[in-house]
Computed example of a mutant assay.
Amino acid sequence: MVEGDWEYQPVRLPPDITRISATVQLGIRAEFGGWELARTLLYADGSRKVWLRRKLSRGLVAGLAT
């Protein structure tokens, strides 16, 4: 999903995943994909939905000729 100058990626984490494991997964995405945490939502069943974001690289915008 693209909004303004940011690209967003929603990630759903199941309720059985530990907090440490979730941190490692999100850290890997941040380190190698350039993502940062934008928002988190905790559901009653214990699952989490997080939105990651990163600045758009103008050369990677779909339909844009370089």
Rank of each mutant, 00 (worst) to 15 (best):
G33L: 11
G63I: 08
W6D: 08
R53E: 13
T40C: 07
I20Q: 08
I20K: 05
I28T: 13
L37I: 11
W35Y: 06
E36P: 00
R29P: 00
G59A: 14
V50Q: 07
P14L: 02
I20G: 05
R53C: 14
L13Q: 05
G27R: 05
S57N: 15
L64E: 12
A44H: 05
L41Q: 10
L41V: 07
Y8W: 05
E31T: 12
R39E: 15
F32H: 10
T18V: 01
I28A: 13
S57F: 03
K49A: 10
D16A: 04
I17R: 07
V2C: 01
L60E: 15
L64A: 14
S57V: 13
G27E: 06
I17Q: 14
L42E: 10
Q25G: 00
L52G: 01
V24P: 00
V11Y: 00
Q25N: 10
A65E: 14
L60A: 15
L41M: 09
R48G: 09
G59R: 11
Q25L: 13
V11G: 09
Q9C: 04
L13D: 03
T23N: 08
R54L: 09
L52A: 11
S57R: 15
S21E: 15
L13A: 01
A22K: 04
V2N: 07
T23H: 02
A44R: 13
A22G: 07
G34R: 03
S57D: 15
T40I: 10
T23V: 01
R39Q: 13
G4L: 04
I20F: 07
R53D: 13
L37R: 05
Q9P: 00
Q25R: 13
A62H: 05
L56Y: 06
T18F: 01
W6Y: 13
R19T: 04
L52T: 10
R54A: 10
V24Q: 02
L42K: 06
T40S: 14
D5P: 09
T18D: 08
M1E: 13
F32V: 06
T40Q: 15
S47H: 14
A38W: 10
E36G: 06
T18R: 03
Y8I: 01
Q25M: 11
D16N: 11
L64F: 13
G4N: 02
P14M: 02
T40R: 12
E7C: 03
W6C: 04
L56W: 02
R29N: 10
L41K: 10
L37P: 05
V11I: 14
